[in-house]
């Protein structure tokens, strides 16, 4: 509202600089939203206590257990054939699922942010589906589709293609659960940026592909990296959907999380170290992800979309 429209009655007097009742309060520069010291102390202690008890302690415990029989045993367990196979499988699945979702995420957010089409809102909802559906159900749906009794079962069998209880099934499950991560980072950012830069590039004679490569991609690269990071962490750690689809054959279809569970069910000291040594790898991945994520948020906050920081 323009300042000149503010009505000021002629007998209006400015309030005196510091009302006495405020000056009497002993706290220096106390603002309206600042609680008394004891309230603040309790809140902080409770928060730190919870984080320590439920997040930090288990993490520390993982490493303590992993090294409980010494470094030698730790590396011994990690080089067991089953452990090696699980690590390889997890890396393989991640190496397929993350690029797949990278491509899908870019395509979907490009379509959603830069074009108008019917059913757009529905597509956005659909992308979020894996967040709201239990991974186990997702796994079961794939079993229903591709299992021996499923819709495509007979056809797959006739053509000798194995999806369920094999690597393709695990990849499918992982792609499903990590579906939204890249797209969710890119969509709000691309929508915010609009199509102005792309139009400028096109008007300067750039082809669609060069426009994407030289203009669109650089504009979203940090958000993209952020999404890939989260996608990667989730892909390596996914348990529910994968456990339904893998069949859990040690040495063949056990990923790292499944191998951890398998080892933890054997009640022996070495099995325990086996489970926790593998868990320590995942914990390490989580830590690295966290550090990179924090770095991205700190360094490129302005170039991630505002929703990215809400994660």
């Amino acid at each position: 509202m323009p300042a000149e429209k503010v009505f000021v009655p002629p007998d209006y007097q400015r309030p005196t600089e510091s009302p006495p009742e405020v000056a009497a309060i002993p706290f220096r520069q106390r603002s309206a939203v600042t609680e008394p010291v004891w309230v603040r102390t309790i809140l902080i202690v409770v928060a730190v206590g919870f984080v320590g008890l439920f997040l930090l302690l288990p993490l520390v415990f993982v490493f303590v257990q992993a090294f409980s029989m010494g470094f030698g045993e730790y590396f011994e367990q990690l080089s067991e054939p089953y452990a090696q196979s699980a690590i390889r499988l997890t890396l393989l699945v991640t190496a397929i699922a993350v690029p797949a979702n990278l491509v899908f995420g870019i395509a979907a957010s490009w379509a959603i942010a830069k074009f108008e089409f019917k059913g757009k809102a529905f597509l956005i909802t659909l992308i979020d589906l894996p967040f709201s559906v239990s991974p186990v159900i997702a796994g079961l749906v794939y079993v229903l589709l591709f299992g021996a009794q499923g819709y495509f079962g007979p056809w797959l069998e006739a053509n000798d293609i194995q999806i369920i209880f094999a690597v393709p099934g695990i990849v499918l499950a992982t792609i499903f659960v990590t579906f939204p991560f890249v797209a969710r980072e890119l969509i709000p950012l691309m929508q915010e940026q609009g199509t102005g830069d792309e139009e400028a590039a096109l008007s300067l004679g750039a082809s669609g592909f060069k426009t994407f490569l030289f203009v669109t991609l650089p504009n979203v690269k940090w958000a993209l990296l952020y999404g890939v990071l989260l996608c990667n962490a989730r892909a390596m750690g996914e348990f529910g959907a994968v456990s339904v689809l893998s069949g859990r054959i040690q040495g063949f279809t056990n990923t790292m999380p499944l191998q951890i569970e398998a080892a933890s069910k054997e009640f022996s000291r070495t099995a325990e170290v086996a489970a926790f040594s593998m868990a320590s790898l995942l914990a390490l991945l989580a830590l690295v992800t966290l550090i990179l994520k924090t770095f991205l948020e700190w360094r490129y906050a302005d170039r991630l979309s505002s929703s990215a920081q809400a994660h």
């Binding site: 102005g196 830069d197 139009e199 400028a200 590039a201 030289f214 203009v215 650089p218 504009n219």
Partner: peptide
């Protein structure tokens, strides 16, 4: 363009 649309 009105808002320049320079490549940042």
């Amino acid at each position: 363009f009105q808002h320049y649309a320079l490549f940042k």
